[in-house]
Design a protein around this nucleic acid. Structure first.
Lengths: 238, 238
DNA sequence: AAAGATTTAAACCACATGGTTAATAAGTGA
DNA sequence: TCACTTATTAACCATGTGGTTTAAATCTTT
């Protein structure tokens, strides 16, 4: 049994932590366990990116509570390289926003420094296996933040005081074309009406949206879910 | 021990599933377990909202694979009521997008119909206790979708071919004011320069962004992460 | 049928916007 | 120093935009 494991190629790990003692500690934990190889370590997030390029590790353990260069930014840059390197965030805090941002940027796991060493090993194992590792307590934190952010967003957009609801169908059509940066003449052509009619509609739109020009109208439309209807459908995020 | 449980007020559950047999089945499972009260059931998502208003249940088990009215939409409407009702999504599919959308709309749990009855009971327990219940397999699906959607988004925004990078500082300042719908005269006043200077900058901006008018320039700026820089900072979502 | 909202359109006017050319001054980098 | 970029301004002109009034035809709703 043990022999089979030894024949498997060990996952290669890169460690980043600005605290040298902690770095050495984690290295010891991983070496003692024996299932993973620590290919390099660094106390600087800046150096991390070049180390990733050199060693192409399977896993990066990235401390995200570093004073100088931000670990989160390092995660973003490593992800941008698109080398299939899996990053596990290491943090001292179980802050909802931190967890959310780390996962958003592509971290495959999030481990607290206060957690037992066995948990860290387990996290690496899971992530090596292609899974996401988020302890249930942190997962709850994540979802709280996730759902709250969307609730606020839809609350703003689907506000009952959305002036867009006062627009007539025709006015919506005109506004839709305005948000594409089309000229009055162009709008008239597309809707098969005269230019003066377009102007009338536009002026009514301005009054209803309480703005003075097309730029402000377009901005209002975008910020209040007019153009987003389609985008929402496609990406379901934002 | 059992007595203590009986003194606790039972959590009140509302069931929604368009399949009557399935509805009866779930009701039986919950009744046999005995820890929760089924206060009402319905095969229609439309009726669900009024039932929530009437009964104020602690938990709603909502089937989200219904042909007529969408269960997801029902979740959204119930959440909008803001009564603190916790919703568990019931689904036949472990589709990443479905899970993502359900959680986005505020579901506190997601359970597959193929799962064992003990799992359903456990899910309700967890959600009653204020936690989020997402089986690890579904959680992975969720995070895949979550991270993919953000990767696509940032890929579009931080495109290396972003024409905004060619703008000079001054031009960025001018564009920033343009995106607020300010007139040339206004921009000139704010930057303490003449109106003709503003026009020169604006024309340079148009050429660099390859557009013909301010509306298109504003749209380009918004769609390519110009104004988003600040928003990103604030909400960390979008 | 009467009242109201919607869509269409014209004429007029003031001002904003966009296109073009040309020129000066200041700062940057080879 | 020379070339390049950036920031500044002017003058000219054509066209687009926004404000206002007025009004007819159509469609809705009571």
């Amino acid at each position: 049994m043990r022999r089979v494991v030894e024949f498997k190629k060990k996952a290669r790990v890169l460690l980043i932590d600005d605290n040298y003692d902690h770095l050495a500690g984690i290295r010891e934990i991983i070496n003692l366990d024996g299932r993973f190889d620590v290919v390099a370590t660094s106390t600087s997030a800046n150096i991390a990116i070049s180390l990733v390029k050199k060693h192409h590790p399977d896993i990066v353990l990235m401390d995200i509570n570093m004073p100088e260069k931000d670990g989160l930014q390092a995660i973003q840059e490593i992800e941008k390289l698109d080398l299939g390197v899996r990053i596990v965030a290491l943090s001292g805090y179980d802050d909802a926003d931190l967890i959310f941002r780390a996962m958003k940027l592509g971290a495959k796991g999030y481990v607290l420094k206060t957690m037992a060493s066995a948990q860290l090993i387990y996290a690496i194992e899971e992530v090596v296996a292609g899974k996401i590792y988020l302890p249930s307590a942190l997962s709850s934190r994540f979802f709280e933040h996730f759902q709250r952010s969307f609730k606020e967003e839809t609350a703003v957009i689907s506000d009952e005081e959305n002036l867009l609801t006062y627009l007539t169908q025709r006015e919506e059509e005109v506004l839709d074309l305005l948000t594409q940066g089309i000229t009055y003449k162009g709008v008239a052509g597309k809707l098969f009406i005269s230019e003066t009619t377009v102007k009338t509609h536009v002026n009514n739109i301005f009054q209803k949206l309480q703005v003075n020009d097309r730029t402000q109208a377009v901005l209002y439309a975008i910020n209040n879910g007019f153009t987003n209807k389609r985008k929402m459908h496609l990406t379901s995020v934002r």
